[in-house]
Simulated assay, not measured.
Amino acid sequence: MSHSEAITAFVTLFVVVDPIGLAPIFIALTLGMSMRQRLIVGLRALAVSAGLMTLFGLFGDKILSGLGITLPAFRIAGGMLLFLTALDMLFERRTQRREGQSQLHEEDDTVDPSVFPLATPLIAGPGALAAMILLAGGTASSGTRLIEVHLVMLSVLGCVFVLFLLATPIERLLGRTGTMVVTRLLGMLLAALAAQFILDGLRGAGIVPLLNAAR
């Protein structure tokens, strides 16, 4: 994997997982917990998320082939899904939905939020799983590059863990306005990456050359 490909993979997963947006949600879901309890919840959520994303990264292409779905078709569909996620981020619908999910768990302190909703759908959501298939699908023929994709995924989850640890001071530093600004900037970046996925899918399906020839 080249340096630019590694950066693209990292940025894609970072924007989709959105560690910065997860930090205040993590605080809400673990309200009243001690630092040790928060650490356990965060580690468990990250372990489950890593397992899900690894599963889709390793076997996602086989699942697609078993269903008769080509990789270019999934790139186009995945790009559309990521674009919808970007729209949610730009218009704050994603934050509102996440806050709604967290409020469902605030009143019951016996609920362990590590698997749901933290691990899925907040960390390893549909967008993240689709991104793993898209990023790993193009490198399925190379074991080394496939490992590199998963190392990038682990680095993003490492960022999530660091932000979980720093969630409280980050929330105080950014405030709600700062978090909204960062979320919208990441949404714009994700929209551009989603468009690139769609273009790659069209190119892989042979549609882009046909469009160029028709001009």
Rank of each mutant, 00 (worst) to 15 (best):
M1G: 07
M1D: 07
S2N: 15
S2C: 02
H3C: 07
A6L: 02
I7T: 06
I7A: 11
T12R: 00
L13A: 04
F14C: 09
V15C: 12
V16A: 09
D18E: 09
D18H: 02
I20V: 15
L22A: 09
P24V: 07
R36V: 14
R38H: 11
L43P: 01
A47T: 13
A47S: 13
S49A: 15
M53Q: 11
T54I: 13
F59I: 12
D61E: 14
K62Y: 10
S65G: 10
T70V: 06
F74C: 10
M80Y: 13
M80G: 14
F83C: 13
L84W: 08
T85D: 09
D88R: 00
F91M: 05
E92H: 00
R94T: 11
R97C: 01
G100V: 04
L104T: 11
E106V: 11
D108T: 04
T110I: 04
S114E: 12
V115H: 09
A119R: 01
T120Q: 12
L122R: 01
L122N: 13
I123T: 14
A124I: 06
A130H: 03
I133G: 04
L134M: 13
L135D: 12
G137K: 04
A140P: 00
S142V: 01
L146C: 07
E148R: 02
H150E: 10
H150A: 03
L151S: 06
M153S: 13
S155T: 06
V160W: 02
F164D: 13
L165M: 11
L166N: 08
A167Y: 08
P169V: 10
E171D: 14
L174E: 10
R176M: 05
L189T: 08
L189Q: 04
A192H: 05
L193T: 11
A194E: 13
A194Y: 05
A195N: 05
L199T: 12
D200V: 08
D200W: 01
A205I: 02
V208T: 15
L211W: 02
L211Y: 01
A213N: 03
A214H: 05
